[in-house]
């Protein structure tokens, strides 16, 4: 079995101090490493804040974009794709081709590109 672990948190909560942030990053690093070593890890990424989200719907063959995250309560998360795209236009065009876009909503969230650990 594979499982998707979705991480929710309150973006508007007080920002952690640099020291707290360092601890959080260290904890995440340790966690990622541990599940990599145990063979559980398949992939994972932090996301940019919801303010960067765009919702994509296709209705009557027309693609509709809306600024902001998916905010309905009647529909639930049903799956995900991780894609590489040149820019948001590219990404939303691909999102619009997902069959579920015709009845549900695809939330397009940029991955937070973490700086590679200093190796040089």
């Amino acid at each position: 079995m594979q499982y998707l672990l979705l991480i929710y948190n309150n973006e508007s909560a007080a920002k952690p101090s640099p020291a707290e942030m360092a601890t959080i990053m260290k904890d995440y690093g340790a966690f990622t490493q541990s599940i990599q070593q145990s063979g559980h890890y398949k992939g994972g990424n932090p996301l940019q804040p919801v303010a960067t989200a765009t919702s994509v719907r296709v209705r009557d063959g027309k693609t509709l974009l809306t600024d902001g995250p998916f905010a309905e309560t009647v529909e639930q998360l049903g799956g995900y794709y991780l894609i590489e795209a040149a820019n948001l236009d590219d990404a939303t065009a691909i999102a619009a081709r997902i069959p579920g876009a015709r009845w549900g909503t695809i939330e397009v969230r940029p991955i937070w590109a973490m700086a590679a650990p200093a190796s040089a």
Binding site: T52, N87, V108, P110
Partner: peptide, 17 residues
């Protein structure tokens, strides 16, 4: 500020469609 951040972080292209 927010709209400029969205443009850069969400990768909205600076181009003619």
């Amino acid at each position: 500020v927010r709209v400029q951040r969205k443009i850069s972080e969400a990768g909205i292209p600076y181009s003619v469609p």
